[in-house]
Design a protein around this nucleic acid. Structure first.
Lengths: 351, 351
DNA sequence: TTGAAAGCGGTACCAT
DNA sequence: ATGGTACCGCTTTCAA
């Protein structure tokens, strides 16, 4: 059933039927009622393609996820973010178009999306410190919102990010408050913007207390269990053996815990851990990971917010860039207690 | 730049330009060369919407992911599956349209997708034992491939599934071979088709050895750390305390390990664990989870396969249902050794 | 080998 | 308040 057929059934013009269905005010209420009824009866649904060809808007938003073949797999955090965003799109009548692309050939994908008029806007995921995509999208004139930030970019653009620097500053300060003086940082890939900010926060906290940062106590890599294990083990067996760790992601933290145990130490007695993760929900454990964690309320929520910002930008004629900074919360998990203990032998006395 | 503009630049008709670009044989080679060149120069890309309106094919595939709000979050396995599928679509010039939907209102989404002609086909994720979606899609005439199976369906349909029954039969048999007689099953949600099959495999292995299954040794629920912990703990403190576990998903297994440790037992000495998971990659640990695992090569690969089956079905005029059963592999992780030990005190003597 | 023109299924301007 | 009609950008007969 298409518009023409429906209008013929009703003895009305396509114009009137279209107006009635799309809520135009000039249609008589009685007519609108009849049209709506008939549309329901005949199960009429406007063809998205035809509509978007006529309006010039594609009614779809693109999400481009970078997947680095060389490294490990897709970051599960995207899933929840997209779930939240998808909800916002559905509510606004937009479709969500997903593209997974190799780290290298991202430009092409954005260009293609823009050229084909396949989407009305995009969400940029996983920005690197030095990310060309933002300049490209500006050049292409394709509305976008970045999930995260790209520090190198000078012109203002829209983004939504968690305050990584502050979260790691607080996490590190927390351990310093407990008397720790040698704190290892297990971080994400150095090229990622968020990892850079996290390290900044860690370094600032150390500096504030006049503690020199040791390069051997900072590790960057994919946030995997393996990386957590290898990094922690190497630090624990090095000379400036840390009494505590600040860890990016619960997954890495599992490796860290394993390393600590392997060495014969006990988490919470000999070594303390503070984990930061954007969200624990993808870990599907309902929040009772037995460690101290800094979590933002929900990545799904962030996705929803980012989507609404983008829809807002698309809707307006002028595109004022919108920046949203989400604060991380420092929360204690259910079985956290013992893990917060001071180390058995602090390297330095408290001041 | 659109087709009309390009054809004007070239002094040719839209028809010829279109034909040249789409590889029709009747175009002179010289003309085709000129057209291709001009298209590249002016960066011409056909508008997807217009093309699909004209052809009747939307050149997009839908993936509908069920997300149960009441329960926990999105299963990360979907991400990898979709990554693989996305690759196949990209190669074939198709877009991937993602819809996340509440467990309840799935019918509506499929109906909508079909009515709007938004996609040429769909992949069905997370089938339940008694799933209405397959009947619905048949009724709608929308081509589809199911990732998994729905046991209640009688008419043949296309699916791609891992041999869950066999994997659990083998995992359980493996423990039985080691002398275990009381084996706990930590499974997924009972409503899910895959969980039912896994239980079947477990039960069959027990039956084959003449061992009676105990309901208290079977637990069904969301595959979370919490569920693994709670189930294992309750079994370990019950009367028929198991000496081994067969666990669905690495995430649950983490909970199981924690429960074992909490009780003061040692994994690999007092209690053995065999984990099954479709893929360990989403756990991002490079395969060295320190447990015995049954893994299929790659969920990404499965996604790619399913996508190609669907594209094949869409391409043909007749739609012969295709069924693909992937065998699970039983693989030993890097640091697996000690975990395979027999229990310190088998409940029953070996026969 | 090339071109004119009629769709595809809507929207939106201009009349009435 | 309703209808006629010219697009939107591409594909695909049918003619030449």
């Amino acid at each position: 059933m298409n518009l023409r057929e429906l209008s013929e059934k009703l003895g009305l013009s396509q114009t009137t039927v279209s107006r009635a269905l799309n809520g135009y005010p000039e249609v008589a209420e009685e007519t609108r009622r009849r049209v709506r009824e008939a549309a329901a009866t005949y199960n009429y649904h406007p063809n998205t393609r035809a509509r978007s060809l006529a309006t010039g808007r594609s009614m779809a938003i693109g999400h481009v996820i970078p997947v680095s073949k060389k490294h490990e797999l897709v970051n599960p955090i995207f899933t929840d973010f997209i779930a939240g965003a998808g909800e916002a799109y559905a509510a606004a009548g937009y479709d969500l178009m997903l593209t997974l692309v190799d780290d290298g050939s991202e430009d092409e994908v954005y260009r293609d999306l823009a050229n084909r008029r396949a989407v009305d806007g995009v969400i940029v995921h996983g920005p690197r410190v030095d990310d060309r995509r933002i300049a490209l999208l500006n050049e292409l004139g394709l509305p976008f919102v970045v999930h995260g930030r790209a520090s190198s970019t000078t012109r203002p653009y829209s983004w939504l990010d968690v305050n990584n620097r502050r979260a790691f500053f607080r996490a590190t300060s927390f351990l310093l408050d407990l008397g720790h003086r040698s704190i290892g940082l297990i971080n994400g890939l150095e090229t990622m913007d968020f990892a850079m900010r996290r390290r900044d926060g860690y370094l600032r906290a150390l500096k504030e207390r006049g503690i020199a940062a040791s390069p051997s106590l900072m590790s960057h890599g994919e946030m995997t269990e393996r990386h957590g294990y290898a990094s922690a083990r190497s630090m624990l067996t090095s000379m400036d053996c840390p009494s505590a760790f600040v860890v990016s992601s619960v997954i890495s933290a599992i490796g860290v815990r394993r390393a600590i145990q392997d060495i014969g130490l006990t988490v919470g007695r000999d070594v303390s851990i503070v984990i930061y993760d954007d969200d624990l929900s993808y870990f599907r454990n309902g929040g009772d990971v037995p460690v101290f964690t800094a979590v933002r309320s929900s990545v799904q929520d962030a996705g929803r917010q980012a989507a609404n910002i983008l829809l807002d930008i698309i809707g307006r004629t002028d595109h004022p860039p919108q920046q949203t900074l989400l604060e991380a919360e420092l929360t204690v998990g259910d079985s956290t207690g013992p893990l917060l203990a001071v180390p058995h032998s602090p390297k330095e006395a408290k001041e």
